[in-house]
Amino acid sequence: MEITIYGPGCKNCVSLADNAKKALAETGVDAEIVKVEDMKEIAIAGIMSTPAIAIDGEIKIKGRVATVDEIKKLIS
């Protein structure tokens, strides 16, 4: 599984990545976390409000920091 975090490196993006790490640790799911920080790449993905999280290339939650519980649901 691949988890992609979209965000230009602001505070929200960092907390979203942290939440994703926590969710992985708590569920024991094996996945790779990829960060996309380039604004161009973010725009190409069709994201207009950051941060956003995608699972296996599909954008799940955008415009806010997804909570650990939400990410757990997404990956299980």
Binding site: M39, I42, M48
Partner: peptide, 14 residues
């Protein structure tokens, strides 16, 4: 529209 300055570039491009 909810908007923070770090989203201005993706919004502009979009």
């Amino acid at each position: 529209t909810p908007f923070c300055s770090c989203s201005s570039v993706p919004i502009f491009i979009g």
